[in-house]
Deep mutational scan, measured.
Amino acid sequence: DTINITLPDGKTLTLTVTPEFTVKELAEEIARRLGLSPEDIKDTHNGKTLDPSLTLAEYGITPGSTITLEIK
């Protein structure tokens, strides 16, 4: 299953994830792909900052969802 990550420059990154991924694991994968530190990444969905300890499923993030990435 894939989700879309909207980057600060407007580009989109597509990642393969499972509903059990935590937001922290997602940030780590994004950081790895972009050459950043996971601590520099802030993920938001529907205007809410995502708690790193919760899973994508707990936020109702499903395949095809879009998450907005902010760099701290």
Rank of each mutant, 00 (worst) to 15 (best):
D1V: 15
D1K: 07
T2N: 07
I3E: 00
I5L: 07
T6A: 14
P8K: 09
P8Y: 06
P8G: 09
T12V: 12
T12W: 09
L13F: 14
T14L: 09
T14Q: 10
T14F: 09
L15P: 00
T16L: 11
T16N: 12
V17E: 00
T18F: 09
T18W: 13
P19C: 04
E20H: 12
E20M: 11
E20A: 12
E20F: 10
T22K: 04
V23S: 01
K24Q: 12
K24D: 02
E25W: 06
E25D: 14
E25M: 11
L26H: 00
A27N: 15
A27R: 14
E29T: 07
E29D: 05
E29N: 04
E29A: 11
A31T: 05
A31N: 03
A31D: 02
G35N: 10
G35M: 05
G35F: 05
G35W: 03
L36H: 06
L36D: 02
S37R: 13
S37C: 10
S37T: 11
S37G: 08
E39S: 15
D40F: 14
D40M: 12
D40E: 13
D40G: 10
D40R: 07
I41P: 01
I41E: 01
K42V: 15
K42M: 14
K42T: 13
D43G: 15
T44W: 09
G47E: 05
T49I: 13
T49V: 15
D51A: 03
D51S: 04
D51E: 06
P52G: 15
P52R: 05
S53D: 09
L54P: 02
L54A: 14
T55L: 04
T55R: 05
L56K: 00
A57W: 10
A57F: 11
E58V: 03
I61R: 00
I61Y: 10
T62W: 10
P63Y: 04
P63C: 04
G64N: 06
G64T: 02
S65Y: 06
T66N: 10
T66H: 09
I67M: 06
I67G: 01
T68F: 13
T68K: 13
L69H: 02
E70T: 10
E70R: 03
I71E: 04
K72R: 13
K72F: 10
K72N: 13
